[in-house]
Write a protein that binds this DNA or RNA. Structure first.
Lengths: 209, 209
DNA sequence: ACCTTTATATCGTGA
DNA sequence: TCACGATGTAAAGGT
């Protein structure tokens, strides 16, 4: 009998049925089932990083003989176990978080503290998380004559969607009667994104970590 | 000695260092390490569904005594094992895929086969994956007078970014001299997205599964 | 190999 | 709780 009150890893021949936002079935096979103390459960197959099926933290697991049922809000995963190969209860499983460096915030700060190295103008104010009617832009500088400079920062390769996002902010500020220049800053940009950037009249700033 | 040529699950006291697109460290603790036949590796902690660190398919795992090193392109994960609690090699681990229903494609097809129930006009052509200069839009109908109707379909709640995406396509087609009407179709839309949609003059179609 | 798009994305934040 | 944006998103599909 499987104890659902403890975290465990189970390798078993089983099949899986999911019903919720979408619906899916997973044919009978040998899969690894991971159940954690937060209630989350996932079914891992023999390739790829992501689970085939999963349920996030807060799910409730019930054991009914050889059938496991995990429920969370309107979503249900049913696992029918045919053969149990191995079952391990994991004790003292750590929940430490990773410490990441090189975040978007780091890039924003670099640009903020070295503003005049990247952007020319006679500024009265530079600030981060500048709120526009359509959401906050990462950085904004305002000149004495009221001209706005808006900068959207990305930590990875810039996508066309990122430039669309900048375009929304720039359009929103121009809608308030201010002249506005738009910038995308990132370590990298592809050629299609670069073209789209130029076609909208925005500037690209190469910003390295 | 750990055999990196076979898929395995390892529960151990260890620490993890990642260096690549970003960089991170994970403090010493007890974690579950999953290594699959496709080379992928992931470090799972005691809560949440996602792995703390991972490397996708195609990574190469090397074992150097009590240190595991996984490399893929310019990314490296180093796992320093302090105590090994359990090690299982998994045989005949299945790689079957889930069969999903309720996909975006399903919604696109529903709209395609019931076009006139949703959109008025005198159409000479309706097609899916209609290519614009800025990428393919999900559905397009062209009237006898050349007027274009572009529809972007989403299977979940519509975001502002989705409407920006439609705006790019519509602007691109208008740029070729064709008059164009834009539509967003989905089962759900939030109020901010709805307002943005209306402000750009696009129509919203409630499209259920 | 690079770029674009989808996903049961997941996850955190702010209203 | 809901809406919205960031993510080492991952994974699939196209050029």
């Amino acid at each position: 009998m499987i104890d659902a009150t403890k975290p465990f890893i189970l390798f078993a021949q089983c099949e899986v049925i999911y019903e919720g936002r979408a619906a899916s079935t997973l044919e009978v096979g040998n899969y690894l089932i991971i159940h954690k103390i937060d209630g989350s459960i996932q079914i891992q197959a023999g390739d790829k990083t992501g689970p085939r099926n999963y349920q996030g933290a807060g799910a409730i697991l019930e054991v009914r003989g050889h059938i496991l049922v995990s429920k969370r809000k309107k979503e249900t995963i049913t696992i029918i176990v045919h053969k149990l190969y191995s079952l391990n209860y994991l004790s003292n499983w750590s929940c430490a978080e990773i410490a990441i460096i090189r975040t978007e915030k780091e890039l924003v700060n670099k640009l903020f503290y070295n503003w005049t190295d990247y952007i020319d103008g006679d500024f009265t104010m530079v600030r981060t998380e500048f709120v526009t009617p359509l959401g906050p832009v990462d950085l904004a500088g305002i000149e004495t004559d009221g001209h706005h400079h808006l900068v959207e920062v990305k930590r990875t390769n810039v996508s066309i969607q990122n430039i669309s996002q900048l375009n929304r902010y720039v359009t929103a500020i121009r809608g308030t009667g201010k002249t506005t220049t738009g910038y995308i800053a990132s370590p990298q940009i592809g050629c299609r994104a670069r073209n789209y950037c130029e076609s909208l009249g925005f500037n690209y700033i190469r910003l390295e970590f």
